[in-house]
Amino acid sequence: MNWILLIEQCLNGIQLGLLLFLLAAGLTLVFGIMDLVNLAHGSLYMVGAYFAATFTAWTGSFVLAIVLTLPATLIVGAVVEIVCLRSLYNRDHLDQVLATFGLILFFNELVRLVWGPAGLSVPLPEFLSSSLELLPGLIYPSYRLAIILASLAAAFFLYWLVARTRIGMLIRAGASNREMVGALGINIRFLFTIVFGLGAALAGFAGLMAAPISTVEIGMGENVLILAFVVIVIGGIGSIRGAFVAAILIGLIDTVGRAFLPDVIGTFFDDEFADAAAPALASMSIYLLMVVILAFRPEGLFSAKSG
């Protein structure tokens, strides 16, 4: 076993997991508080990446692009909430799935209209384009390390916001009893818009960080959205802590599985079979995990009300 490779893949897995967490946190907040299934969350991720590409091209600086992208996605999220999603809170989940499915189609075409059908690429920021030697023999790109640190910072910010501030208190109160919070004189509609905008900004943040290490293209949000849904379902819908644990778990299993499953299967079966079966098994493994967890714990790992 190659330990250097294993550690490197684990870091990659954690990095993917943290990105997934940023997406899943918004999704699970919106679900836990507004009881809304939002398929269009992946579109906000995509919009974040496109904003990052444009702002980087305009300003020539990735850092400035971050500063501009976060409020921009927050505004997009708030507008979507006010114009469209607000009237869906009291509908059943099927209606929400359908309407937000319509939003996906709309956003994909809008992006194609504005940015054109070809994919964009965002250059790595200069100061992060090198690599660091973390351990003897373990060289890791500093940009990926920066993603890990930035996501962790965002996760801590979210924890602080939800657990330590007045607005976080209202969010938690809204999750456990919407009507009561409204009856106590809190402007619940405004609170919902803020929560949705916050979720959108987090998704946009994930999108903009993923932009330099992947292609910015239409539909990029759809596959990652499904992963984020797997995360929140495994973690227990509405639970941020559950989303964090599940996101890291999914990131690790997906990345490490892809890297090592061919070898593992190869030791038990012949190589031809391993080459054929391993990629499929690696892609299937997270869904398999979700199925197993739901079969034994139909509500996910963490209960929704535990925060």
Binding site: F229, M284, Y287
Partner: peptide, 22 residues
């Protein structure tokens, strides 16, 4: 509820990747 929506989605994704792997 929503868990049912998601688990049926997960199964179809599994089959999707299964056939991609073939």
């Amino acid at each position: 509820g929503v868990y049912f929506i998601m688990i049926t989605l997960a199964f179809s994704q599994m089959l999707y990747y299964f056939f991609i792997g073939l």
